[in-house]
């Protein structure tokens, strides 16, 4: 049997996104006393084949105009409904007012996502405001976690984003964030203390330097 329908069944029944690695483990896994003979013959399935089958599934759903799709979230694959059906599903599942993140929470989260591991002070340096409250909310919602301690004096705690963060925003991984390379570079630049962009952009000369004793 082709592995595509098997993978489809696995994705269909799974409660969480499955990574190609996890999917492969289903094929290659052993240890059962009396393995089902049906399982034999798939022992050598490779991750690349699995990834290929998933791609085919994605295309199938699009071609058949199904109401669901294969989404790539947090390093795994998951069958989800298409956004067009949100209004009905929300009613069915009784989701009325989802708790959306505040602008300050989103800002802080963006900074953490790009600059992790990052300390509280470093976040505040970018935002120009205290982040205590916001950080607490983000921890509380499981979008951010403590990742370790920085080597700076006082060994401040460092924070990073979680799997739940990727899931919340439907991101494949951190590379899925816009302009991640650029924003990271900006950071690298700052650390090297590169001089400001260009003196060419100097202020357009002060509005006529005060003529001393200009009074008649």
């Amino acid at each position: 049997m082709n592995i595509k329908p098997i993978i489809e069944a696995l994705l269909f029944a799974a409660r969480k996104p499955l990574s190609p690695k996890e999917l492969r483990a289903v094929f290659t896994g052993g240890g059962d006393e009396k393995p089902d003979p049906a399982l034999a013959g798939y022992k050598r399935v490779k991750e690349a084949e699995i990834a290929g089958a998933i791609e085919e599934l994605k295309v199938d759903y699009i071609n058949d105009d199904r109401s669901f799709m294969v989404a790539e979230v947090a390093g795994g694959f998951q069958i989800v409904s298409k956004p067009d059906f949100g209004p009905w599903l929300k009613r069915l599942l009784n989701v009325d007012r989802p708790q959306r993140l505040s602008p300050s929470a989103l800002e802080t989260l963006a900074i953490i996502a790009y600059r992790q591991p990052i300390t509280r002070n470093e976040m505040e340096a970018v935002r120009g405001v205290n982040v205590d409250g916001v950080l607490r909310t983000l921890l509380e919602r499981g979008l951010v976690k403590i990742t370790g301690r920085s080597g700076l004096p006082g060994k401040p705690i460092q924070y990073g984003t979680t799997q739940a963060f990727l899931e919340h925003f439907g991101l494949r991984d951190l590379e899925d964030l816009p302009a991640i390379e650029e924003l990271r570079r900006l950071e690298a630049k700052k650390q090297q203390a590169v001089p400001p962009p260009a003196p060419a952009a100097e202020p357009p000369a002060p509005p006529t330097p005060l003529p001393s004793g200009g009074n008649p």
């Binding site: 799974a14 989800v80 949100g86």
Partner: peptide, 9 residues
């Protein structure tokens, strides 16, 4: 907002 409209199984 987009993700709010999407439901896993």
């Amino acid at each position: 907002l987009m993700q709010e409209q999407v439901f896993p199984r």
